[in-house]
Structure formats: C-alpha cells, structure tokens
Design a binder for these strands. Structure first.
Lengths: 342, 342
DNA sequence: TCGCGTTCTGGCAACGTTTACAAAAATATG
DNA sequence: CATATTTTTGTAAACGTTGCCAGAACGCGA
C-alpha cells in the first residue's frame, strides 16, 4: 500500500506538504504542488480514509436504517436521502433491520463507535440506547432523525405526515363516494402510524354518523399477502363492506386480487383506497386511489435535518409535518360516480 | 469520548489488558477481566471502530452497488446479501449509482481508500479503475464480484443466470401457446443482459420458423412507463402482435396497462410474458407469466464469493450460473388454452 | 523454601493521517 | 543590503487501537 510518506519521499517534500497539497492546495507553492501531484499520479496514491477519519472529528457519513429495503416506499425515501446526502458531501450507509431489534442495535452502535456521525431512522423500532434515554428523560445519546414515525416523550427531530388527517381524508373520500359500509385493513399496531391511521378512520366514520360493524377492522402486516387474506376475511362477513381503506398500497393490491378472485368488481361492488402511492398502484387494476406521501421531501428533509444537527446549525423546526395528498384513481369509483351524475 | 485508556485507568490495568479483555477474554485473569468489564459498563465505553480498522488489516465490510435501490429486483438481492453478510460477520454499505459513472467511481474509491474490503456490483456499469484493467489485461485492482451482468474479457467472479436460455424459454412458452406474432420489449441495450435476452428471443423465433416483423422489437428502459409507451407503439402497428415478451416485469406491467387502455384483453388478444418475477407481478391483472430469477441465491452466492476472495479461500467456480424458472400465470393464456383443449 | 515452567501483564511501537508550532525561505521595506 | 514581515515548509505529536516482546506473577514439584 502506498502511503503519504512514499509520496513525500518521491516528491522530495515532507508529509505535511503532501497533506496540504491535498487539503489546501493554495497554501503550497506551485512548483512543489506539481511535484506532489505528479508523484500521486505516478504511484496511484489514494489517501487511506480510515486514517483520515481517525484524525478528523467528523466523517461526513450517516446511516439510514430501514425495516425492509425491498419495500418501495422505503427505498424511494432512501433514494432521495442519497441524492441530498451526495450533494451535501455525505456518505450513506444503509442498514436493514427486518424488524429485528438486534440488527437495529448493531447499526446504531456504528454511530457510537464512530463509523458514522448520525442516524436517520425509518420504521417503528427504536435503538435500545435511545429507548433507555426516553425513559430517563435524558437528551439523545446519538444524533438521530426520525422519518415517518414519531414517539411521544422522545425529544427528537422528526419529519412525517399527519397520518390521522391523511387516513381521515381517505375515508371521507369513500364517504363522499356514497359508501356507507366502510371497512379498514390496518398495519401492524406496534407502529404508532398504524394506530394513527386507524384513528383517522374512526374519526371520519364517527363524524359521518357511521358505525363500523364488528369485523370491519382487520389486521394486516403491510404485505401484499396479508392484504389478500384480510380481504378474504372481510368478504366472508355477513355484512359485507362496500368499501375498504387499506393502510398501505401493497395490502390494497392484495385486497384487489382477493376481490377479483371472488368474482366481484372494483369499484362497483367494493371500492378501495390505499396509502403511499406506490408506483405499482397506478398500474393496478383498476388503478388505485391512494394517499400520496411525499417520499422525496421526506427523505430530503430528514437529510437536511441530520446535517443541521451534525453541524450545530439551529433547526428551524423540531418536527416537520409535510403535506399529504389524495390521489383519485378508478379503484374508489370516482369516475363511475361522475358518469352516473350526469 | 471515553477511550481504552480511560478504562485502563479506572480498572487499574494497562491498555493492553483492556484490549485483551475485549479480544480474547480467556487470556486474562478473571479478577482483572471483571474489573475491566465493570469499568466498561460504568463508563459506557464503546471501542472506536475507526481506530480498530486502522490497526487491523481487514474491516469486514463490503459495498453493494446498485443502479437503483427502488427497483424491487435489486432490493431483493440486496436483502439476501445483507442476510448472508450479517451471518458471515460483514457490514454492508449500499451505494446507488442511478446510472452515473461518477457515483459509481465514488463508491469504488471507498474500497481503494480502505473503507470497505470489496465490492459487489449489480448492474451494467463498471468502475473506471476496473475498466482500465480490462483494457490492460491486468488482474483486478480491487476485490470484485459481478452479480447479474458479466463482461467478456474481464476475469472476474460472476454469478447470474443464462439470460439467452431464459429469454428463449419465455418465448418458446408463447410459441407453445400457439402464438405466432410475437413481439418483444427490450431493456436498454448498453446492458449485456438485454442483448442476451434479445438473442434468446431471436433464437426461439428462428427455431420455430417464425420471423419477427419490422417494428416488433421495441426499446424500453426497464421502467413501467417505458413498457407502457413501447406497448402503445406495438398496438399501432399494422401487423399487430398477438404476444409480447418483455425484458422485465415492470415493463410488462406497463404494457398490460396499455393493452387495457386500448380495450383489448390479456391473454385473449395479446399474451404477455415478463422477466424477474417481481412480487407485484403475481398480483397484476391478469397475473403475470414470467421468468423467475433466484434473487435469494443470487445475493447469497455473490456474498459467499466475495467472502471467499477476501479470505483467499479458493473459489470453486469463477462463474456461477443459477437456474431460472418459468412461472406460468394467466397473462400468457395457459389456463385458457387448457380449458379449450378439453 | 527454592527453582522452573507457565500464564498474565504492561510498555511501547506501530497503523496513515492531520495539524500546531517552529524554522526556513521568500518577499517587502527602508 | 540589512532587516522586518510574510509566506512556505518541515518536525513531531497526536488520533485510539492492537499486538509484539519482555518481564512479572503464579503454580507446582522437590
């Protein structure tokens, strides 16, 4: 391995000069600078980043922790984090927990052990170190930004949407489509955002004077399959719903499939609304009405927040709530209704 | 920051003893070991991974480079790499290139600068350093494993499937379904695997005595949208095809949508076969016949190969070709044909 | 109790950088 | 041309570990 010392020798200068040529070239006389650069070129020198990091206080690296990379919703956020990170000069490490606390802690330790400067957390689990903090009411042990989920009692920068309002909007849309028997397929209730979405559902129902019947609230786990099985259960109900609000698009796609299998049609027999606005939802059959989360802004904001924390810039807001949006497509019956109104 | 020296002082031992307590506890007397562990506990010491890496020859970290994380095909491979990596004690960094050479080189430099030990490359671009190697006929400058794509003339471990045979199988299936006017939507031709798939298409056609008409071969870029627009072009043809082989599932999903929009039905009017076996394909309408790539094995094999390279274990095979599989669902008309045969 | 072989322990030199400080060289000033 | 000032350079001390080596402590048999 060729080191800075080899370059110094070859160029006939001191190591300090080599280092300076790399860090602040203006500070070194052109003649030497050229000699150094030439030596670097000739010997194909690449500075050892590990050694640099040992000396420097900052590494300009962050970790993004995702429950599941293969989930397009998360990977789209990651993608936008990557873009901004690059622009701000950060390196991005991605860790996948698959819902395991052990893995999460493993990645969190990468910031206590100085591999990275900070953490962006997508998903519902908290690292053990942080969890201890919450209980003790202490400040955060590591620079952390929460994207998507927020935790009561944890004083931590956060970016997300208003899930209660968003879910409510989705259900209100179904109500506006003159559906009355509205069911919901929820995500795993350990996630606070699932609880929020369920709350939004209830709130919309109550305000419209509708009462969810027994069996209209079914648990899913965010997977296509769980949406499928949940829908099958709803279809077996005596009091079959005429609309379903799904807590994410993947479950909505699974639900659509189940409806087709039973020979029913969407939206005539049952209207569907999803959540997330996955790329694939627009190409489902029929195209899925959904709530769009601004994945780009989510990622970008999270990245800018962690950058601010790491550089002690004041955060303008501790908690950023971004706008969601109802995307109306055919699965909720809007077109049909429009047509029949004419 | 609390260092190994602080612990040594607190526990009344030397730094060497602390280090040993961490690395090989059996080698230190239980009394001291306990004192050290207690000090570590009390002071919440976490070893500085950067400093460790500076001393150690290996970091047990690899980089996986993906063109696009949000592409489920890639993210599923990444997921299985992560799993095996974890088991083998590696840390995984993920880099996304978005097709940009500059970004790719940036990540590749992370291994020359010792941030990671090796590289797993998904996608078609090669890092500049490696490209230089190919020309010069030199050995690889960095430990590298190619997943998916392979390069003629580059002597580099590789895992993938036989794309020519897989594409051929897909088209032969359409031929077996008694389709004669078979078109194809290709991926970007810079990828060697797209060229391979096109070759497989041709080969199947020629062997069956069929000749692709002008306009039956349309370019896509692997995105849903490009599948959609490509299909629209096919539908405008005088000699409209009665089947389409798409080089990936996303384009197939886009194509299905286009067909529906024109009021045609799948598979009666046009049969569709995709490639990759995305989760979403099984829930498309109708469910998509496709070629399954073994993403799990792909990731696992790639990870085991790079591990072998890094630890100088002999590679049993320089190039591993995994089995693909035809997954027959309704989009290719197999069921319909079965029914009418009775 | 002594001597000897083992097992443990501590001191210290790396690892490859960056950077404070001092020294040297270049430049400006009179 | 000497001196003062500024710019450029080199020396060496960090950064936090690990692991070699020498020496200390221990255990055991006589």
């Amino acid at each position: 391995m060729v080191t800075i010392r080899d370059i110094a020798k070859r160029a006939g200068v001191s190591v300090a000069t080599v280092s300076r040529t790399l860090r602040e070239p203006e500070a070194v006389r052109p003649a030497k600078r050229d000699a150094v650069n030439q030596a670097i070129e000739e010997m194909k020198y690449v500075p050892n980043a590990i050694a640099q990091q040992l000396r420097r206080p900052r590494h300009e690296a962050i970790i993004v922790i995702v429950p599941e990379i293969a989930n397009p919703f998360f990977s789209e956020i990651v993608q936008s984090i990557e873009n901004v990170a690059h622009e701000l000069g950060y390196r991005v490490l991605i860790g996948e927990t698959q819902g395991k606390q052990e893995r999460l802690d493993y990645y969190a330790e990468m910031v206590t052990s100085r591999v990275a400067d900070g953490l962006i957390l997508l998903g519902s689990l908290l690292p053990s170190v942080v969890r201890a903090t919450v209980k003790a009411g202490k400040p955060l042990p590591i620079p952390l930004v929460l994207a998507c989920e927020s935790y009561a009692g944890l004083n931590c920068p956060h970016v997300g949407i208003d899930n209660v309002a968003a879910a409510k909007l989705a259900v209100q849309h179904l109500i506006a489509m003159e559906r009355k028997r509205i069911a919901t397929i929820t995500g795993p209730m350990v996630n606070s955002l699932c609880a929020d979405r369920l709350r939004g559902y209830h709130s919309a129902m109550v305000e419209a004077g509708l009462t969810p019947e027994a069996g209209w609230i079914v648990d899913g786990d965010f997977s296509i399959e769980s949406g499928h099985t949940a829908m099958l259960r709803l279809l077996e109900l005596e009091s079959r719903p005429d609309a379903v609000f799904c807590a994410n698009d993947e479950m909505a796609i699974g639900a659509q499939q189940a409806i087709h299998e039973k020979g029913l049609t969407i939206p005539d027999d049952i209207a569907i609304v999803g959540f997330d606005d996955l790329r694939f939802g627009a190409y489902a059959s029929p195209p899925l009405t959904t709530i769009r989360q601004p994945t780009n802004e989510l990622g970008e904001t999270a990245m800018r927040m962690i950058d601010a924390m790491l550089h002690d810039k004041p955060l303008t807001e501790q908690s950023v709530v971004l706008a969601h949006q109802l995307i109306v497509r055919r699965s909720s019956g809007a077109q049909e209704r429009l047509a029949s109104n004419k």
